[in-house]
């Protein structure tokens, strides 16, 4: 297990999250994919914290997880509010600003 392996794993996870965001239209799955991408960043931060030999990276991941929790709470509240007025979770049908 080297830093390169860990960074590559983080890159694979980030790519999968990006593919999920690009290829899916269900807003819930898109939010889930964003969570995967955030986790990839967390993995890379912990790997580099271990590489540098201090704990600052791990503290940063702690903050990232706290912010991700806030993001999910607000994001899912937005999905519920959207579902209430449009009765859909299809991202392509939410184009009020385009019209």
């Amino acid at each position: 297990m080297t830093v390169g392996h860990l960074v590559t794993l983080a890159g694979v996870l980030f790519t999968l999250g990006m593919l999920g965001v690009l290829s899916r239209r269900n807003i819930l799955i898109i939010l889930l994919s964003v969570e995967l991408m955030l986790n990839a960043a967390a993995l890379a931060l912990v790997a580099f914290a271990s590489y540098r030999g201090n704990l600052d990276g791990q503290v940063m991941v702690f903050f990232a997880i706290a912010v991700a929790a806030a993001e999910v709470a607000v994001g899912l509240a937005l999905v519920i509010a959207l579902f209430r007025i449009r009765v859909t979770v299809d991202a392509d049908q939410v184009n009020l600003l385009k019209q």
């Binding site: 080297t2 390169g4 590559t8 890159g11 694979v12 980030f14 030999g53």
Partner: peptide, 25 residues
């Protein structure tokens, strides 16, 4: 493309030669 760039950069900077896990913080 992103993955290829990432692996290439890691290889160039020698990150594949730095073991982690044991002895870290």
């Amino acid at each position: 493309l992103f993955l290829a760039a990432l692996v290439w950069t890691c290889r160039r900077s020698g990150l594949f030669d730095v073991p982690v896990g044991a002895g870290g913080p």
